[in-house]
Design a binder for these strands. Structure first.
Length: 566
DNA sequence: TCCTCTTGCACGTTTGAATCGC
DNA sequence: AGCGATTCAAACGTGCAAGAGG
């Protein structure tokens, strides 16, 4: 289900993430870190998906690892437009697609290696929001995080050549606020539903909460199966894809952007000349002023308590006092409507390029030091897109960089009741699957474990929220690494989530056990060994991490059992 | 009363089966 | 008979608007 239009169209629309790596190999990479465009040094044509020519850098090809994978967000500019306005995503009971849709261009994969691509959406902070006075404001503490659910790309697993051939689209992913969503929720397991990857298109979210999608790439090569020493995965985060989930649009700018850019909403585009005239007067970027927009602007005007101005003028004034979705407060200084700076956000680094990588082969300690060093020290030496700055921009503080990881089987099985099963190596097939359970998600409620960092560098202080430096974003697997990090530094640990139903649908071998009885595999399709292994791997990862998170959650909001009981 | 959510609607796009012509 | 192009209707994806519910 690789997507859509030719690459040529999208080439300009994104920049690839530059996985400057932690670990020994990555330090060198970091030193040479180039402009993180599609081709990184050391990546040959083969790395970009083309067959190596006579002069191809064979060595570079041989060195292809998951750390070299670059991911570019398709339609980045469009995403940025939304981001700058404060992206909102409609969630409905039936599920609503994201727009812009999440599409990426992947390069740097080994064309012959199989990978699994999947997405999860994690809370960006622990606040609930409300849209008041034409801006997003914190309205309280977030509701308990929904059970995590992954959306595995239907093509998974597929070779690197397959993924790199064209855009990888996750446009079928749907967002729902239905806690009893039939697409994989636990309540359905009781009814004997069996779910498969292609059916798991829904991710459950809470309305009026801020979320951050994350892309995970998991290596699933048969010659390097999960459980082997070099099982690897990486995570890419594009901060501009963060959004606030809503049941109806709050910000008219977002509405207008959706109408203008989403072909399915074409029916709401104004077409008459009067609209266009108004549009030209008001904004080049929002050329159509529909009656609904007018209504909303009227409301905004009323809220702005400036009775002496016309509705449109009031709307502009409201826009000039626009608040950035994530808490940073922005003040537009435009004096005239036509000068309204719609894209005057503080310079944000190329989001896709936050990349943090860890290798964990022999020990946690082994993993820890080099990676941390590269992570902490490299920024000044490499392209800015590769690392956090110090202090990082607000957005980067909120969103962790992409990272990649390799784990040992032992570590992958951490917290699992039966390591080999989790590792997906041996003994799995022999185990009879436990009773079916379609209702397990590992979930993370990471709020409590993160250090809070007051963002003095955030340019828009008026926003009342303090963001956790690390928010909900990925944490690298070894917690021990945290202890050696300097104060204020972001903590990372993996929390890849794998829904149990996905584990189930992906493979019969994924019958895990753990303290509370891991959900079993119920499947009717022959599982892919790759995906199965990936699921097991991710699941074990998530569990090993979610256990911590679960405990946090447990302590604050309830019991994990509530989610997992099968 | 306010805010959030649900539901039905109209409109446009997408998709795939049916039809036609070569 | 086979293949490709075209047509058309159903399915699907949108935002809007009204009303329900907490």
């Amino acid at each position: 289900m690789l997507q859509d239009k030719g690459l040529s169209e999208s080439e300009e629309a994104f920049r690839a993430t530059g996985p400057v790596l932690g670990g020994e190999a990555n330090a060198a990479n970091a030193a040479n870190a180039p402009e993180p465009e599609l081709a990184a040094p050391g990546l040959s044509a083969a790395a970009l998906g083309s067959p190596p020519g006579p002069g191809a850098d064979v060595a570079a090809v041989a060195e292809q690892t998951i750390e070299n994978i670059k991911v570019g967000l398709h339609e980045k500019e469009l995403w940025k437009k939304f981001h700058e306005a404060g992206t909102e995503m409609i969630i409905t009971k039936a599920g609503r697609r994201m727009f812009p849709s999440y599409k990426v261009k992947v390069t740097g994969m080994n064309p012959k290696t199989k990978y699994i691509l999947l997405i999860d959406i994690v809370p960006a902070d622990d606040h609930r929001y409300k849209f008041c006075d034409n801006k997003w404001m914190v309205a309280g503490k977030a509701e308990p995080a929904m059970p995590g659910r992954l959306y595995v790309h239907p093509d998974s697993p597929a070779t690197g050549a397959h993924w790199m051939r064209q855009l990888v689209s996750f446009q079928k992913l749907k967002l729902t606020n239905n806690h009893l969503d039939p697409f994989g929720h636990e309540s359905q397991s009781d009814q004997g539903l069996v779910l498969h990857a292609g059916e798991l298109e829904h991710i459950i979210l809470n309305s009026m909460h801020k979320y951050q999608p994350r892309l995970h790439i998991v290596k699933a090569d048969e010659n390097n199966a999960f459980g082997s020493k070099n099982t690897a995965f990486c995570t890419h985060v594009f901060p501009e894809t963060s959004f606030i989930s809503v049941t109806s649009y709050q910000n008219h700018k977002i509405t207008q952007l959706k109408i203008e850019n989403n072909p399915f909403a074409k029916g709401f585009r104004g077409s008459d000349d009067s609209d266009l005239r108004v549009a030209r007067l008001q904004s080049k970027e929002y050329p159509v002023i529909s009656k609904s927009i007018m209504r909303q602007r009227l409301v905004s005007t009323q809220l702005s308590a400036k009775p002496d101005v016309s509705p449109l003028h009031g709307a502009h004034q409201a826009l000039q006092h626009y608040q950035y979705e994530n808490g940073a407060h922005m003040q537009f200084a435009a004096a005239e409507p036509q000068d309204l700076p719609l894209n005057t956000f503080p310079a944000q680094r190329d989001s896709s390029l936050f990349y943090h990588c860890l290798k964990r082969r022999d020990s946690v300690r082994h993993l820890d030091l080099p990676c941390k060093r590269s992570y902490l020290e490299a920024p000044s030496a490499v392209g800015e897109d590769h690392y956090f700055r110090s202090p990082p921009p607000y957005d980067q503080q909120m969103l962790s960089p992409s990272y990649c990881n390799e784990v040992t089987p032992r570590e992958a099985c951490m917290y699992s009741g039966s390591g080999p099963e989790i590792a997906g190596v041996s003994g799995v097939d022999e185990l009879p699957p436990p009773p079916l359970s379609c209702n397990m998600w590992t979930s993370v409620s990471p709020y409590t474990s993160y250090s809070v960092q007051t963002m003095e560098t955030v340019p828009y202080q008026s926003f009342p929220t303090h963001f956790t430096a690390t928010t909900m974003m990925p944490r690298l697997p070894t917690i021990s690494a945290q202890s050696s990090q300097p104060p204020g530094n972001t903590h990372f640990s993996v929390y890849n989530q794998l829904s149990q139903s996905q584990v189930r649908e992906r493979g019969p071998t994924a019958s895990f056990s753990r303290e509370r009885g891991l959900p079993a595999v119920c499947e009717r399709k022959p599982p892919s060994p790759h995906l199965n292994a990936a699921n097991e791997f991710l699941y074990s990862q998530s569990f090993s991490l979610s256990r911590e998170a679960s405990l946090q959650y447990h302590s604050g909001m309830g019991t994990v059992e509530n989610w997992t009981d099968g």
